[in-house]
């Protein structure tokens, strides 16, 4: 290639010239160097981005926790933390269970039957994450039109199954992973 052309400021003309000719060894080296350089930049950038993800200590704090249900009276809502996230354990009354079960599922914004939100044979125990699915505030228990929860921030209303009924929250309160160890003990996580 013409060295003078390379030295000139008119790179566009130079590139056009190369495009019409057979690829040269120089073209190959140019692209290969650029590609390796881009991979290198990405490889160095990744640690700087990934350092912000949950660290080993935070993840380790996600070890399962066992909860003794026996002291929780009927009608009571207990708050606890797992992985730094708030969880509600609600001991539902017969009336609250009935209200949750008799709803026409198709009419719900996020359709889900009550049976899908509790464990078989443990319908009196509702275990849900305690942060509103709108913007993360903590809803207040036993309030709102459905006696479930009412979020004080932006007015989302949840029923006694933790399902969204009114307001800006897009989904039901999610269910954390948990299992019954026996009738009065659950393990979350």
């Amino acid at each position: 290639m013409d060295i003078k052309a390379l030295g000139s400021k008119d790179w566009g003309a130079n590139v056009a010239e190369i495009a019409t000719a057979e690829p040269t060894r120089r073209d190959f080296l140019f692209i290969a160097t650029g590609a390796v350089g881009a991979v290198g930049v990405a490889a160095v950038a990744w640690p700087f981005i990934n350092q912000m993800n949950p660290d080993a200590q935070t993840i380790a704090a996600g070890a399962p926790v066992e909860v003794d249900l026996s002291p929780i009276a009927e009608g009571q809502i207990v708050k606890l933390f797992w992985r730094g996230k708030l969880i509600f354990v609600r001991h539902r009354t017969k009336k609250e269970i009935e209200e949750a079960e008799k709803v026409d599922v198709a009419s719900l914004p996020d359709p889900q039957p009550d049976s899908a939100r509790v464990k078989d044979g443990h319908a009196q125990w509702l275990v849900v994450y305690g942060n509103c699915t709108h913007l993360g505030c903590v809803p207040l228990g036993n309030q709102g039109a459905y006696d479930g929860w009412l979020c004080p921030c932006h007015g989302s209303v949840f029923d006694t199954s933790g399902r969204i009924r009114q307001g800006p929250a897009p989904t039901n309160l999610p269910i954390p992973p948990y299992a019954f160890l026996n009738d009065s003990k659950i393990r979350i996580g």
């Binding site: 912000m52 935070t58 992985r83």
Partner: peptide, 30 residues
Amino acid sequence: TVITNLFSALPIVGEPIVTWLWGGYSVDNP
């Protein structure tokens, strides 16, 4: 909590972005 949760409105990438912003599963020391 409210402002970082704004990003959870994004489909698919929302939740990972919020976890990344928090450095955990909720607003905390990180």
